[in-house]
């Protein structure tokens, strides 16, 4: 894949992949991948002009502030950075966003959310991890809840989700829990991705200009 650069893409950045290849592996069609490339170029050159999305650029895009760190944004970045080389390449960007497409499979969304919440990548969502995420959310929202209330919220959720009662949530328990509470993965779908070329017509104009070059 990576070595078969056509003449047309010779000037593209490292990690660039042909839209036709990405379209065949994701819910996006070719013109949507081209539109995503326009968005990718914008995000990946916002601070460091190297055509790769760095963590600060991701934070800037999410929060309008390159220094605003957030546990969940960090986790999303780490999952998008499939090669774990500290940047999000174009192919990684499209493949990862594909999970958020309304037509992506529910199974992929459930798995992605599980990996997101499995902070220490042990293959389980542990009680301490859930508590850490609740505390991060409270901190982010400037909400103050007593330690006892936080413990109760975590305990209650664990008693519902950890059906095997071993103190951790495995993938099967997570799947069952999400099927009881489908709203848990509502944020795993971005309706805008359904037809990104309609939602962002300016990207299409730009990508057509590129094609003519």
């Amino acid at each position: 894949m990576g070595c078969k650069y056509s003449k047309k893409v010779i000037n593209k950045v490292p990690g660039y992949e042909e839209p036709i290849v990405l379209a065949s592996q994701t819910p996006f069609n070719v013109s949507e991948v081209e539109a995503l490339y326009e968005l990718y170029k914008k995000l990946s050159n916002s601070i460091i002009a190297d055509g790769l999305i760095h963590r600060e650029e991701f934070q800037l895009a999410l929060f309008r502030n390159k220094n605003k760190r957030n546990l969940f944004a960090d986790r999303i970045f780490d999952l998008f950075d499939i090669k774990k080389n500290g940047v999000i390449e174009f192919g990684e960007f499209v493949r990862s966003l594909g999970v958020f497409h309304p037509d992506a499979s529910m199974e992929d969304k459930i798995k992605f959310a599980f990996r997101l919440y499995d902070l220490r990548q042990t293959g389980y969502i542990e009680r301490e991890e859930l508590k850490e995420m609740v505390l991060a959310l409270l901190h982010e929202s400037d909400l103050v809840l007593s330690v006892d209330i936080v413990e109760s919220i975590v305990d209650k959720t664990f008693s519902d989700a950890d059906t095997k009662g071993d103190g951790r949530i495995d993938q099967d328990e997570w799947k069952a829990f999400v099927s009881k509470h489908p709203s848990l993965i509502k944020n795993m779908t971005l309706p805008y991705l359904k037809d990104i070329t309609l939602a962002f017509p300016s990207f299409v104009v730009n990508s057509e200009v590129d094609d003519a070059d």
């Binding site: 969940f72 999303i76 959720t157 848990l184 993965i185 971005l190």
Partner: peptide, 26 residues
């Protein structure tokens, strides 16, 4: 809302850091 009845995952799913919509805003 009784906090103890909150689902912790519902709560954390409201994080701004999980809202990728901002990526598409100009």
């Amino acid at each position: 809302v009784e906090p103890v009845t909150m689902n912790a995952f519902e709560l954390i799913s409201t994080s701004q850091g999980l809202n990728l919509r901002s990526l598409f805003e100009k």
